[in-house]
Amino acid sequence: MDDTDRDRDSPSASVPAGPEQEHRLTAEELAFLLRDPMLQAREAERAARSNRSRTERRAADPAYAERLRAGDRERQRRRRLRDSIGRPEPPEQPAVALPDLTQAQAAERLTDHLHRSASAQAAQLRARPDRIRLYAEAFVAYRTLSADGVRPTRGTLAALLKSRFGRSVTPSQVQKLRDHVEGFAAAGGPWAEMPASGAASGTVAARKRNGGKADTDGHAPRPFRP
Rank of each mutant, 00 (worst) to 15 (best):
E108I: 03
E108P: 03
E108G: 10
E108T: 12
R109K: 07
R109Y: 01
R109A: 08
L110Y: 08
T111N: 12
T111E: 10
D112E: 15
D112Y: 13
D112W: 15
D112P: 02
D112S: 15
H113A: 12
H113T: 06
H113R: 14
H113G: 11
H113M: 00
L114Y: 00
L114S: 00
L114D: 01
L114H: 07
L114Q: 04
H115Y: 14
H115S: 09
H115R: 13
R116H: 15
S117W: 05
S117E: 08
A118M: 14
S119R: 08
S119V: 01
S119N: 10
S119A: 01
A120C: 03
Q121Y: 11
Q121V: 06
Q121L: 09
Q121N: 14
A122W: 09
A122K: 06
A122Y: 10
A122L: 03
A123C: 04
A123N: 02
A123K: 02
Q124P: 09
Q124H: 14
Q124V: 06
R126Q: 11
R126H: 10
A127R: 12
A127T: 13
R128W: 02
R128F: 07
R128M: 01
P129K: 03
P129S: 07
P129D: 06
P129I: 05
D130M: 02
D130F: 01
D130L: 09
R131D: 02
R131N: 11
R131P: 04
I132S: 09
I132G: 04
I132K: 00
R133P: 00
R133L: 09
R133N: 05
R133A: 08
L134V: 00
L134A: 04
L134C: 03
L134E: 02
Y135L: 15
Y135R: 06
Y135K: 00
A136T: 07
A136N: 00
E137Q: 15
E137G: 06
E137W: 05
E137K: 12
E137M: 04
A138L: 07
A138Y: 04
A138Q: 05
F139W: 10
V140P: 02
V140Q: 04
V140T: 12
V140E: 03
V140K: 05
A141V: 14
A141D: 08
A141H: 10
Y142F: 08
Y142D: 08
R143F: 06
T144E: 15
T144I: 10
T144G: 07
L145M: 12
L145S: 00
L145Y: 07
L145A: 11
L145N: 08
